[in-house]
Amino acid sequence: MIDNDILRIVARFLIPLIMLFGLYIQFHGEYSPGGGFQAGVVFAAGWILFALIYGLDAALRVVPERAMYILMVAGVMLYCAVGVAGVMLGGHFLDFYPLLPGEHAAQQFGIITVEFGIGVTVATVVMLFFTLFARRKSQWEAAEVEDDQP
């Protein structure tokens, strides 16, 4: 599909837009519909589009599989870290008030961090899903060929 000019040009415009939109719903989630989960999905969708047009290998050069794996764990870890921080600062688990002096500021900080963690995890998990499923076919065919030879 890389050869198709129209697609390439459209994609070149579209992909940054999608990713930008993803970031928007990530960080604007407190004001309008959206949040970590939706943002993650949209962001991943942009990457998947990229992979569909430029090929999976090219997409994996942008975000390697190992990075996805680590990031998906890291996202949830960030969430837990916020929770544990609440305990360390004398509150309950996932209590945001102790995090910062101002009540609203503390809550907003907590919500944004937590949503960001979710966003990272969701985006990378979805990308990982796609990578694994899409690659499986070619691997399988390769295995079949190998098997037929001996």
Partner: peptide, 20 residues
């Protein structure tokens, strides 16, 4: 009472470490 939820949280968080 404050310790009690950590019987869930400890394995939960440890799983993250473990995965890596």
């Amino acid at each position: 009472t404050e310790l009690m939820p950590f019987s869930v949280l400890v394995p939960l968080i440890a799983s993250l470490v473990c995965a890596l």
